[in-house]
Design a protein around this nucleic acid. Structure first.
Lengths: 149, 149
DNA sequence: CCCGAAAAGTTGTACCTACAACAATGCTGT
DNA sequence: ACAGCATTGTTGTAGGTACAACTTTTCGGG
């Protein structure tokens, strides 16, 4: 005869299993390390990530950034605005002044080189925090998502 | 004699290896699924996670929430405020009206039960997105961080 | 070519987040 | 008991994020 099932409360179930809970904590913990480490050059990890993405793929339109980076289009719009104003991205505009595409400027490219040492320190700290296995798992998981998008 | 090393640009290096890049994309993608799935009950995954954490550990002071959930104390302060105003958390206050500790109210507990079905749908969608292996890795990584904190 | 629908970008609004500066609380040694 | 210091919580400010509503652009079928 079947063994009586234990019925964990909603709280137990969510606390024990929730993926969002864990992803979000991880995101805050990891982002904080990069942001703090790169603060001396006045760049956030959010900004660096966008510049690197644009620099890697070349000229892109905002919607592709959103698709690949899982960002809502309005978020992309505002984030690009800041980087363009700072001269780190260069935009091709439509008649109505909408961003048709962006590319990394030379200044942007130099800026990425500038943050590299700090980025490396942060990356190393995070690897230590997650352990080699954890860090590897995280990269694999991210790549899987990136290649799917 | 040693083989000449290829020198990837800063862009290549960061794009290929950055853990923050991947964690943050994952965080947005995952959070969006939970938020959209639970929108009909008017709760965000952020709120549910805090309620569940408080419900699980019982009466806690804000600083512990921050420590365990990797949230800055000011963030905790504001997030608790909302849940208290909504009657989902109950606060013990100091003379100066500062929050000494919070606990889950009965209404809060019921609310968690209410979102459970939607939470399960979201959880299932995310598991599908990450695959069983990926989801497992994510939970392990999160637990590791939680137990260390 | 043109019309209508779909896709893409922007703006208003609101929530989540963090840092800095400040205020209140708690603790420790004498 | 209490003076000084460390911890804890709040508020000002600013960036990151998403949804809804709107505008502009693009794209396909007549």
């Amino acid at each position: 005869m079947p063994i009586a099932q234990r019925h964990p409360s909603a709280i137990e179930e969510i606390a024990n299993d929730c993926i969002a809970f864990r992803v979000r904590i991880l995101g805050r913990a990891v982002s904080a390390i990069y942001d703090q480490t790169m603060a001396n050059v006045g760049m956030s990890i959010s900004q660096v990530n966008i510049m690197v993405f644009v620099g890697k793929v070349g000229r892109v339109n905002p919607s592709l950034i959103g698709a690949k980076m899982a960002m809502e289009k309005s978020t992309v719009s505002r984030n690009l605005k800041g980087l363009i104003d700072d001269g780190l991205l260069e935009a091709e505009l439509s008649d109505g002044d909408r961003i048709k595409s962006v590319g990394l400027t030379e200044e942007g490219r130099r800026r990425v080189e500038t943050v590299l040492p700090d980025w490396r320190r942060a990356q190393s700290l995070v690897k230590k925090m997650l352990g080699p296995t954890g860090a590897g798992a995280m990269v694999d998981l991210g790549n899987q998502l990136l290649h799917k998008a």
